[in-house]
Computed example of a mutant assay.
Amino acid sequence: MAGKNTVEFSDASFDQDVLNADVPVLVDFWAEWCGPCKMIAPTVDAFAEEYAGKVKVGKVNVDFNNGTAARFMIRGIPALLLFKGGKVVDQRVGAVGKSELVKMVEPHLG
């Protein structure tokens, strides 16, 4: 359930792929059974394509990576967290549109 510019993150790879990244990272916490997660997936994938090279975009399936979900206190999905320099700098919970993703990310570019 990821586009060509959308990465799958796991508990094992999260620190290296997200916290140590040299660009901002937008992480979509989701699950297969989550309707709103499926609803925003094409938006997240389109965003990943548009911002390729500027922002890393990936997904964490909370059913298989509950350690990471617990670590960042994910209580509702979809949850979108923006990381920069290893820290959460913005977040949204629920099915949000592309304009919200742009609002999250733009202040942290450049």
Results as ranks from 00 to 15, higher is better:
M1C: 12
M1G: 11
A2Q: 13
G3A: 08
G3K: 01
T6V: 13
S10D: 04
S10A: 13
S10V: 01
S10Q: 08
S10N: 02
D11S: 11
D11L: 08
D11V: 03
S13C: 02
F14Q: 07
D15L: 01
D15F: 00
Q16P: 00
Q16V: 14
Q16Y: 12
V18F: 10
V18T: 01
L19I: 08
L19W: 01
N20H: 14
A21I: 02
A21S: 15
D22F: 11
V23T: 15
P24D: 06
L26W: 10
L26E: 07
W30Y: 14
A31Y: 10
W33R: 08
G35W: 05
P36Y: 13
C37N: 09
C37Q: 04
K38S: 07
M39P: 00
I40K: 06
A41C: 11
P42L: 10
P42H: 13
V44S: 05
A46F: 05
E50G: 02
Y51Q: 12
G53S: 06
K54F: 12
K54P: 09
V55L: 07
V55F: 14
K56Y: 05
V57Q: 06
V57E: 06
V57T: 11
K59S: 07
K59C: 10
N61V: 03
N61K: 11
N61Y: 10
D63S: 06
D63W: 13
D63A: 07
F64T: 13
F64C: 00
F64D: 15
N66T: 00
A69G: 05
A70P: 09
R71W: 03
F72W: 10
M73F: 04
R75A: 10
R75H: 04
G76P: 00
G76Q: 13
P78F: 09
P78Q: 11
A79C: 14
L80Y: 03
L80G: 00
L81D: 00
L82I: 10
L82Q: 07
F83Q: 06
K84S: 06
K84L: 05
G85V: 09
G85R: 01
G85T: 06
G86L: 10
K87P: 13
K87N: 13
K87T: 05
V88T: 10
V88L: 01
Q91W: 00
R92V: 01
V93T: 12
G94W: 05
G97L: 04
G97T: 02
K98S: 08
K98D: 04
S99D: 15
L101V: 03
L101T: 03
L101A: 11
V102T: 11
V102W: 10
K103A: 15
K103E: 15
M104V: 07
M104S: 07
E106H: 02
E106K: 11
E106A: 13
P107T: 02
P107W: 02
P107I: 02
P107D: 12
P107N: 03
L109I: 01
